[in-house]
Amino acid sequence: MELVNTISQGVLLGGLFALYALGLSLVFGVMRIVNIAHGDLIVVLAYIGLTVTEFLGVSVIVAAPLILVVAGGLGWVLQRGLFEFVPRHDPLIPLLVAFGLSIILQNLLLMGYGADPQKLSLGRLEQASVEILPNLHIGVFSLIIFGLAVAMIGGLQLMIYRTGFGRALRAVSDNEANAAMLGLDTRAIFRKAFVIVMLTVAVAALLMAIRGNFDPASGSTRLLTAFEAIVIGGLGSMWGTLAGGVIIGIAQMVGAQIDASWQVLAGHLVFLVLLFLRPSGLFPKNDG
């Protein structure tokens, strides 16, 4: 029963990891940028959530729409003000720009909020749990996270495969130069894409901030788990990313059962083993 409990916790944690990963995967898929700063953007949004809820004195749920608007705006600004100017013919350049951004964001947070861990509160809902099997309790909040992950992946899939914007996104992702030549407004598409990316980042950030502590240096572990979930799942496959997140989640929870210090290492080790066994991921897409 202990094991079933651990695994179910890991599965639900995997939903959060998949949420971390969605934006990273989109930025790479559409703009071909390896956004090293992705984890830091998650943490920035967590702090914005903290500030907004404290300033307005309302719960996260009430403040969420405003936070989402801020996140979207930030996405637009980042694309319009920074990434739009980054030459992408050499993948090294955007990678290193994102790296610089990552360090800037971490240290801005450090200046603004200090190094102390912070947390968002959701009151009683955080502790609530349901008994789905005898002796198997599952946290309501964990279920909410997982449900949101599934809903967001489903929503993004619909957007990408069923809308005109998604069509344009895929065309740009296939071949940006051709898309531009035919008259697709690639700059507008990239800006919108970054807004959507930041919306996923905001959702992930708020859930992360409610679930546990965060500090200005928390971004790197989020980046690494997001990355692992994507690679395990197979680049470009969002349901694969969820599966990848679940695998890392289970590995971490099982590792934590052995010893708290094994939690993160266990996740990394499982990732490396899977990378060795299945380099193109569990659900590879054959689009090169």
Binding site: G164, R167, R170, A171, S173, D174, N175, D287
Partner: peptide, 14 residues
């Protein structure tokens, strides 16, 4: 310049 990720119909709809 047909986009491989798009179906025939989606290419036209684009």
């Amino acid at each position: 310049r047909i986009f491989p990720s798009l179906s025939v119909e989606e290419n036209i709809l684009l």
